[in-house]
Design a protein around this nucleic acid. Structure first.
Length: 425
RNA sequence: CGGGCUGUGGCGCAGCUUGGUUAGCGCGCUUGACUGGGGGUCAAGAGGUCGGGAGUUCGAAUCUCCCCAGCCCGACCA
C-alpha cells in the first residue's frame, strides 16, 4: 500500500490525472536519425559530399538497416497510456531535466533543461524587444500595504509568501515576495509617466516569482518559477488592447509555433478566469500528449484599473489630465513542461532543434583497433560544428551502446548519428 | 482549512500485525574481467542516527504518547 502512495507522489494533481491515451504510430523507421527526429527536424542523411575522410569501409548507421529490427526494447519510462503524470515524472528524472527542491513546491532545474530554457528566453526576449519593449529589473519584495491596494481584492491571499523576519528581528511591516509585479511596477510607472510624450511605456522583466501553490508540479506549477512579465502603459484603450494582442500573437504564438513547434489556440478567458483586475485576458492554449490543454502564456488588458490605484496619470496634448491604460503579459518555465508533454512520447522527451542545446550527437558505436572510427566521428563533429550545428561527440567507451543510445533518446536529441565499423550483411 | 495515509542507504520498496543474532531487496554508485550494432554478463565492494523526542521492556524499525515532514481526496488557485 505504501507503494501506491509513493508511486502517486508526484502524480497528477486534480484535473491532471488519467485520460490514458496512447499515441498513434510508433517509430518504425530503420534509421536512427529518422527514428529520433523531433518536431521540425528534417531527416539527416549523410550525402556524398558530407562523407568524412577515412577508410572507405566506414558507413554511417543512418544508411543501413538495424541488424535486428525485432530487437526488444525494454521500456525505460512508464508508458504514457498507462499513467501520463508518472510518465512525465519519469522523463524529468531520467532525462535529467529537473527535480524537487527540499522546500515544498520548489524546483531545481538541471543543466540540460536550463540550457533549453536559456534558448527559449533568448528567442522570446528578441521578439519582445522587436515590439519596442525594453527590459528592466524591479525588486523582488513589496510592502504588504501596496499589495493590499491591489484592485478587486483585499482578502488575504494564501499563495503569497511573506517575509516577517530580517536583519535578526521581526519586521514592523512584513514584506511580500512578488507573485507578479503589477503593484511594484505600477508605483514606478506613476513616477515615470507624466506626459503623453512618455507613452507608451513598454517594460519587461525577467525574474523569479513565488506563489505558494497547494499542488505543485515540476515546471507546470511550482512555488517559485522563472518567467518574463511585461507591463505597459498606453494613452488609449485601443492602443493598450492592440498591444496586448500583438504580444500574444507576434511574440507568444510565433515563438510557440515556429520555435517550439507546438500548435496553439488563442482563447479569451471568461470573466471568472480572468486575472484579477483585468478587463480582458487572452491566452495561448496548447494540446498536450494526454489530450488536455495547457495554458502556455497570457496577455491581459488591465483597462484603467491599475492606473487608478497607482495613479498612473498624464497630461494629454490638450493639457487635460488622463488616466493611462495598462497591460501585463507573461510566459514562464511552464513552457518547459508544455514542451515535454506536447512532444514527448514513450521513448522520452523530444527537443525541437531550435532550442536544443545538443542538436546532433555523433555516437561512436564501438571501439576499433586502429582508431579510424573514432577519428572519422571526430571529423564529422568538427565539420558540423564549423557549419554552425550544435554537435556533441559521444565516444564513451566504458558505457554500453544501448545505455548511451537510450540516454540520448530520453533526452530527445533531435538527431543521433551512429558510427561504427561496417558489418557484413 | 476539513477527511484519509505514509516516513527505513541517492531513488523505489520489504520487514512492523505476533518486539529477539549482523535491518534486507531492486535500481543506482565504485572496482575488475568479459563485452559492446538499443539500459549486456559475472565477480567483488561502498553506502543506513529505520523522520525527531519521550516512554514501556532484559531487549524497539516493530508497542504507546507527543512533535515534525510529506503524500492523496476535497476546498482554494493571479
Amino acid at each position: 500500500m505504501g507503494g501506491v502512495h509513493r508511486r502517486a507522489r508526484h502524480g497528477g494533481g486534480a484535473g491532471e490525472g488519467g485520460h490514458p491515451q496512447g499515441r498513434p504510430g510508433g517509430r518504425t523507421g530503420p534509421c536512427l536519425a529518422d527514428r529520433r527526429a523531433g518536431p521540425g527536424c528534417e531527416r539527416v542523411r549523410p550525402t556524398r559530399g558530407a562523407d568524412p575522410p577515412g577508410p572507405p569501409q566506414l558507413r554511417s548507421r543512418t544508411d543501413g538497416a538495424l541488424p535486428s529490427p525485432a530487437m526488444a526494447r525494454t521500456p525505460v519510462l512508464t508508458p504514457q497510456g498507462e499513467d501520463f503524470p508518472r510518465w512525465y515524472q519519469d522523463v524529468l528524472t531520467k532525462a535529467e531535466l529537473a527535480e524537487n527542491g527540499p522546500v515544498r513546491g520548489t524546483m531545481v532545474i538541471r543543466p540540460y533543461a536550463d540550457a533549453i530554457w536559456e534558448r527559449m528566453v533568448a528567442e522570446v526576449d528578441a521578439r519582445i524587444k522587436a515590439t519596442g519593449a525594453e527590459n528592466a529589473y524591479f525588486r523582488c519584495s513589496s510592502r504588504r500595504a501596496t499589495c493590499a491596494a491591489r484592485p478587486s481584492t483585499s482578502r488575504v491571499l494564501p499563495e503569497l509568501a511573506v517575509v516577517t523576519h530580517a536583519g535578526g528581528k521581526e519586521l514592523e511591516e512584513p514584506a511580500v515576495v512578488r507573485p507578479t509585479s503589477e503593484t511594484v511596477i505600477g508605483e514606478y510607472m506613476a513616477k515615470w509617466v507624466q506626459s503623453y510624450r512618455d507613452l507608451p511605456l513598454l517594460l519587461n522583466q525577467w525574474a523569479n516569482v513565488v506563489r505558494w501553490e497547494l499542488r505543485p508540479r515540476l515546471f507546470l506549477r511550482t512555488s517559485e518559477f522563472l518567467w518574463q512579465e511585461g507591463h505597459t502603459a498606453h494613452a488609449t484603450a485601443g492602443e493598450a488592447s492592440a498591444y496586448a494582442v500583438r504580444i500574444l500573437t507576434e511574440v507568444y504564438r510565433d515563438f510557440m509555433v515556429n520555435v517550439l513547434a507546438i500548435p496553439v489556440h488563442i482563447g479569451v478567458k471568461t470573466a471568472a478566469e480572468r486575472f484579477a483586475g483585468a478587463t480582458n485576458t487572452l491566452a495561448c492554449e496548447a494540446m498536450m500528449g494526454d489530450g488536455k490543454a495547457l495554458q502556455m502564456g497570457t496577455s491581459h488588458e488591465l483597462g484603467q484599473n491599475f492606473a487608478r490605484v497607482f495613479d498612473i496619470g498624464f497630461l494629454d496634448s490638450e493639457g487635460s489630465q488622463q488616466l493611462a491604460w495598462t497591460t501585463s503579459w507573461g510566459v514562464s518555465t511552464r513552457m518547459m513542461g508544455g514542451l515535454i508533454m506536447a512532444h514527448g512520447d514513450d521513448s522520452g522527451m523530444r527537443v525541437p532543434p531550435r532550442v536544443a542545446e545538443v542538436q546532433v550527437v555523433v555516437m561512436v558505436v564501438r571501439g576499433d583497433d586502429d582508431g579510424a572510427v573514432a577519428a572519422a566521428a571526430r571529423s564529422i563533429v568538427d565539420e558540423l560544428i564549423a557549419a554552425g550545428v550544435r554537435t556533441r561527440l559521444d565516444d564513451r567507451a566504458d558505457a554500453p551502446f544501448g545505455r548511451r543510445a537510450t540516454d540520448w533518446e530520453l533526452k530527445g536529441c533531435p538527431c543521433v548519428w551512429s558510427w561504427g565499423p561496417a558489418i557484413s550483411p
